[in-house]
Simulated assay, not measured.
Amino acid sequence: MSSRETLFEYPKAAFAETELARRIALAAEDYPEQEKGKPHLLRLLGELDLLIEPARRVVRRLDIPQAKRPQTIILMPGFATGPTRMRYMARNLEKAGHRTKRWGLGRNWGVAADSLTRLEQRLDEICTRYDAPVALVGWSLGGLYARELAKRRPECISRVITMGSPFSGSPRANNVWRVYQAIAGHRVDQVPIDANVSVKPPVETIALWSPSDGAIAPRSAAGLPGERDRAIALRCTHAGFTYSPEAILTVLAELDRAQSN
């Protein structure tokens, strides 16, 4: 390697080492008071249920009711996942007669400064194409995006359904905030957008939560009365919000309930 190549390679390596050290430090931070209410680590082991879910689908047959009035739905994935994780739910919503759309941002690697702007553009595109408001169904971090998007563009959104989304209380009342900070590169309470996730959007907002959630504190996902319109308890893991029959049928029921009001 020439001296010129070495000159340019060294700063890159130094930067990489510095950035890695910064992210490790973010993951190692200690906020015991802010973690109160998070699920016991044994609950987190329950999330391994995800591994046997594909085998269940071979024999499972869901009795999917037909939608009273089909609508367009944007599905928003959770942290570190993408549209593929939402595909099983999408297929069953489509089986009921709804039209599902991807959120358009690929894999969800955390809150980024331009994310909501890109989501607004995606929302405008879909609303214009079908000339009607859409419903947002967001899992975990995807639900937080859904709530904030509904505050920006309520005229384009009919309702928001969150699934295990930590919009209430401490953003560290969960078992994943350290991983989030290491990957996203910022603190969970210092995201790079102007947002107050506990404030209810000006559209109908339904929060699905579970006492069996191994990742997110149930209270954070259920919220307080003024932070959502309704909270519905399910019996599924955190990952199970995307594939459990109870979650899928509840989402379908809530979409129809909202339509009939």
Rank of each mutant, 00 (worst) to 15 (best):
Y88G: 05
I161V: 09
L105S: 06
P154Q: 08
G164K: 12
K12M: 03
L62I: 14
C156D: 11
M76W: 08
M1L: 15
L224S: 14
R153E: 07
R99M: 04
D213T: 05
N175E: 09
S244L: 14
N196Q: 15
I64H: 03
D256W: 01
E35T: 07
R129C: 07
A195F: 02
G104S: 03
D229W: 00
L42W: 15
L116G: 09
L252A: 03
T117I: 15
P192N: 00
A222G: 14
Q34H: 11
P202H: 07
V191S: 02
G226R: 10
W209G: 01
V59L: 07
P154Y: 10
R147S: 04
T6V: 12
L144E: 02
F15E: 11
L44V: 08
Q190S: 09
P171W: 02
H40I: 10
D49L: 10
V199E: 11
A146G: 10
R228A: 00
R60L: 09
V179N: 11
G185L: 12
T237L: 07
P70G: 13
T117L: 11
R102G: 07
I248K: 02
S2I: 11
T81S: 14
A233K: 09
N174R: 09
A55K: 09
E33N: 05
E29K: 12
R230D: 03
G142A: 05
V111T: 14
R159G: 01
P211D: 13
D194G: 03
N108G: 07
C127G: 09
M163K: 00
R91S: 10
G214P: 00
T250Y: 00
S210P: 05
R43Q: 12
V251H: 01
S210Y: 02
R172Y: 11
G226S: 06
G104Q: 04
G138E: 00
A28R: 15
Y243S: 13
G37D: 03
S210N: 03
H98F: 11
I73Y: 02
L234R: 06
D30C: 09
G82C: 08
M89S: 06
D63V: 14
D124L: 12
S198I: 05
G223V: 10
S260D: 02
C236A: 12
E125V: 07
E246D: 14
N261M: 12
E9L: 14
A215S: 12
G164C: 12
A253F: 01
L44A: 09
E33D: 12
R107A: 06
S210L: 04
V188K: 10
K36Q: 06
G240Q: 13
P211A: 05
H238K: 03
R57H: 04
E33M: 08
I193T: 06
E35V: 08
I161G: 00
E120G: 08
Q66K: 15
M1E: 13
V160Y: 00
C127A: 11
K38L: 01
D189Y: 12
S168N: 06
R219A: 15
A215K: 08
L249P: 01
E17A: 15
